[in-house]
Design a protein around this nucleic acid. Sequence first.
DNA 1: ACGAGTATTATTGTATACAATTTACTTGAT
DNA 2: ATCAAGTAAATTGTATACAATAATACTCGT
Lengths: 222, 222
Amino acid sequence: MEEKEVQSEVTDKYSLRGRVFNRLREDILSGKYESNEELREITIGAEMGVSRTPVREALRQLELEGLVKIVPNKGAFVTGISAKDIHDIYYIRSYLEGLCAKWACEHITAEQLEQLEETIYLSEFHARKKHMEQIVELDNKFHEIIYEACDSKMLRHILSDYHHYVERVRKVSLSDVNRATKSNEEHTKILEAIRAKDAELAEHLAHEHIIKTIDNLNRCGL
Amino acid sequence: MEEKEVQSEVTDKYSLRGRVFNRLREDILSGKYESNEELREITIGAEMGVSRTPVREALRQLELEGLVKIVPNKGAFVTGISAKDIHDIYYIRSYLEGLCAKWACEHITAEQLEQLEETIYLSEFHARKKHMEQIVELDNKFHEIIYEACDSKMLRHILSDYHHYVERVRKVSLSDVNRATKSNEEHTKILEAIRAKDAELAEHLAHEHIIKTIDNLNRCGL
DNA sequence: ACGAGTATTATTGTATACAATTTACTTGAT
DNA sequence: ATCAAGTAAATTGTATACAATAATACTCGT
């Protein structure tokens, strides 16, 4: 089967800048740096074995991502992402995932419907086996397919961004097997609504799906 | 009165990179470049009298903004922003402005309420006088105040971005004096709902406010 | 000992130099 | 004339050099 590369990485993976960008983003999101910690170009460059140039470019990009604050002539400081930020993102996503599912009803292809079905089917298998790694990956895939299907560059862009932001938290949430199973059931219902072209229902279900995820996170004490 | 600088410019205005970034963004959004047009680092640098370094950093940032697509080892190409993109952004905004108004109910300060009132009052004046420039500026301000008041870094960030994206279109929409007047009435109702801490109503009104703006755009043939 | 002012150092901002890659062109064989 | 291969030119990717700014340390007077 042809495995379509999901374009979650905006930035070139293979250039030095891309590598620095991705690694810094990962490190910031995973909490390796303190909040407000200063990121010195030379230091980071030395750590990664590159010159200042790619580091600077990566830092400037991270500024736009909101993960770093750059003070002119002073330096780059880690902004990080607080528990409230994550909470807010989930609420924002609850609306946008709803809108996305609604639009997907109009634009989804038979092939994409097929892919969604397959994704859920596989995910049910891995949920029974408690293969957490695969569950998260398939959750990723399910949502990314709908992002594609909504046929909106803007909506896909923002949702992919947020999906990335909360990746670490999603892993925790889905580690709860009960939640993973529930999540699959919700995915199934969303798929059925989209297949039936019931835009209202699809929107509502996708919205509720995220709200329930938030509830679960709260239960996990996040 | 202390005029608080609205931080719509993420990027340092005074560095060369910041200037290149802002100018390129403006030029792309205003349609100065063709879609898919190649942006050569040297050419742009020459046009703006700077070296490649600040140009590269600006281009990398614009990539993250989605205004430029960078193909490794080949170049930077204008992505631009289509009529559909703008349409999509307005729909996305309709939800997010609703959410923003809802959250603002909980967090808005007396001072911010005061500012909102003043903004509307002034805007009514300029609407009667047909001072289009000021009307757009005050519309900006009204929304930015609420973005601040929602007390969510993430939501403010994304809404400010989108506000910027559609700035050119907003000017067209508000050039219709009838729309400008209507818009002020809607702003007033939103303000009242927020002041009354009626989160449900505020959300609904803010949502509808954007939907009506979309209707108006459609009537203008955008 | 303390603080103002200055010199030194460190760091960022920008320009340029060099390397790697891609694109365009030229040349030659069929 | 057409196409292919190879070479030259142009362009991007990265590193380094230089300039400007900010942080630090030091001197000197009180």
